[in-house]
């Protein structure tokens, strides 16, 4: 089927109009919702930090956001370092995961809290994380033994890679609680 120039022109105009209007509408809604979304995310992160190291005060050490480690925060209690919290983000074919990993001064994972879990099998991944990383036993030496077979293997593998990155960073930079 060969289209006339007039028809092609009409199609182009309609497509431009629809795309332009859609874009404008999305921009408008984004302008309204963006500050609230940012505020929500700050609140969520603060309550997650308090969940990981209860009663601690936090100081951001690095927020460069390169690679998967987006932020490193130091947790102190009575002027003593109790651990570090890593904000990490990664994605696979099943969606994005953003989480906070708490690492104690001894190098053990204290808690993993999801900030965003866009995996299709999100609840399965969360079940796996609750059963595996919240026991306080996972460390640089034992993370290789974490089994990712949980009904959402790809999501669990992504979490494992993110937690490994946090532990590697800890080992390289703060081993023994030293900065």
């Amino acid at each position: 089927m060969k289209l006339s120039i007039k028809k092609i022109f009409k199609i182009s105009i309609v497509l431009m109009l629809v795309a332009g209007l859609s874009g404008a509408l999305i921009v408008l809604v984004n302008m309204v919702t963006e500050p609230i979304i940012i505020e929500n995310s700050i609140k969520q992160e603060n309550s997650a930090l308090a969940e990981i190291f209860d009663g601690a005060s936090f100081e951001v050490l690095d927020e460069s956001g390169e690679a998967e480690i987006k932020k490193v925060t130091k947790a102190t209690k009575n002027d003593e370092v109790v651990g570090y919290v890593y904000r990490l983000s990664g994605k696979n074919a099943y969606g994005i995961i953003t989480l906070l990993v708490g690492v104690s001064k001894n190098g053990n994972v204290t808690k993993v809290v999801f900030l965003e879990n866009g995996q299709s099998f999100a609840s399965k991944v969360e079940e796996h994380v609750n059963a595996t990383y919240q026991t306080g036993d996972v460390s640089t030496t034992s993370i290789d033994n974490v089994d990712t077979k949980c009904g959402a293997t790809y999501g669990a593998k992504l979490v494992k890679a993110l937690v490994s990155s946090a532990l590697d960073h800890f080992k390289e930079n703060f081993k023994g609680g030293l900065e």
Binding site: V29, V32, T33, E116, N117, Q119, A122
Partner: peptide, 23 residues
């Protein structure tokens, strides 16, 4: 477009529902 709008509104005003329904 409407799905994007719904997503942004739910993320802003119903964050629990947004994280529960996810993808």
């Amino acid at each position: 477009t409407f799905v994007t709008i719904v997503k942004m509104f739910s993320q802003a005003y119903l964050p629990e529902l947004y994280s529960k329904l996810g993808v």
